[in-house]
């Protein structure tokens, strides 16, 4: 066979893979695009002030998502406050402190496995442990902690990935100057890793925001026409955390309920709620990209 022919054959193979690659990339993007276009067409008319400030109702045109989006926001807050310190601390420990032995390997394998456990299993665990054993009730606190368990592996893994990208020389230089391990972590590693960690946290949160199954399991509600008590009070001590004990609903549950109702007018509401949810997710992701970009720019090594 002549060389020119071999080259032609290889170029052809290259071209074929190129086409396959483009096709595979497009499958995901086109699906997402079609989904968003469909949602916007159905749900855009619902995105008005009234929709965001009304409680659920039996009348499709009067029903809104107030209790659902407030619930989603508060649950996410609890999730972030719980999962971030736990996950980052665990990630730092595993990466910077823990000795490499069979125990750490075992822990690492288990964290990887946890990331693959179906979310309903977390719901069942939370029902037994948080709701019944620890008596936390079917509250925002329980919901937030449940989702925190769910995203903990993602936070740990992304913290470790972020720490690994920092050159070894920085650790060695700091240690050579007499820093303790903690000083290295506190003054050098954490500031450099913040971008990566935050990206991981936000992506984890945008996964948690769409979860339905574990929250239904622990007893999130469908019809709830009041808000949790306000965190700011007029009397001392001015701040109240009573809201963490409040019953709640979240956007995906509200959406599911509307989709499955007999009256088709509710399908438009479901699309509106879906649009609100997808906007929240996309803006979280956009924030992640932005933060990563800003942090990368600051790093000079």
């Amino acid at each position: 066979m002549e060389y020119s022919e071999i080259i032609r054959k290889r170029k052809r193979e290259d071209f074929i893979f190129n086409v396959i690659g483009i096709f595979c990339t497009l499958v995901g993007i086109v699906t997402l695009g079609a989904l968003i276009v469909d949602l916007v067409m159905d749900g855009f008319q619902k995105l008005n002030w009234q929709f965001f400030t009304s409680y659920p109702s039996r009348f499709a045109d009067k029903a809104g998502i107030l209790s659902a989006w407030v619930g989603t926001l508060l649950v996410m807050l609890v999730t972030a406050v719980t999962a971030v310190p736990l996950g980052v601390a665990a990630g730092v420990y595993l990466e910077e402190y823990a000795r490499r032995n069979w125990l750490t390997s075992l822990i690492e394998i288990n964290i990887a496995n946890l990331a693959g456990v179906p979310s309903i299993v977390y719901g069942l665990m939370a029902l037994g442990l948080l709701v019944y054993q620890l008596q936390l009730g079917q509250s925002i606190l329980t919901g937030g902690i449940t989702l925190a368990f769910l995203i903990l592996p993602i936070v740990i893994v992304s913290t470790r990935e972020a720490l690994r990208t920092i050159p070894q020389g920085i650790r060695e230089a700091a240690l050579a100057l007499g820093s303790t391990n903690w000083q290295v972590v506190r003054h050098h590693l954490l500031p450099y890793a913040t971008g990566g960690i935050l990206t991981g946290v936000i992506i984890a949160l945008s996964r948690a925001i769409g979860e339905t199954a574990p929250l239904v399991t622990i007893g999130a509600l469908t019809f709830i026409a009041f808000l949790p008590p306000s965190p700011i009070q007029s009397e001392p001590p001015y701040i109240s955390f009573d809201w963490i004990w409040s019953p709640f609903s979240v956007l995906p549950i509200q959406m599911f309920n509307w989709v499955s109702r007999p009256d088709r007018d509710f399908a438009v509401n479901a699309a509106g709620a879906g649009l609100a949810l997808i906007t929240a997710t996309l803006s979280l992701n956009a924030a992640a990209i932005f933060i990563r970009y800003r942090m990368r720019k600051k790093i000079t090594w």
């Binding site: 007893g219 999130a220 469908t222 709830i224 026409a225």
Partner: peptide
């Protein structure tokens, strides 16, 4: 609003 009602679908 003096009495609150919640409904779930388990």
């Amino acid at each position: 609003g003096k009495i609150r009602v919640t409904v779930g679908i388990s």
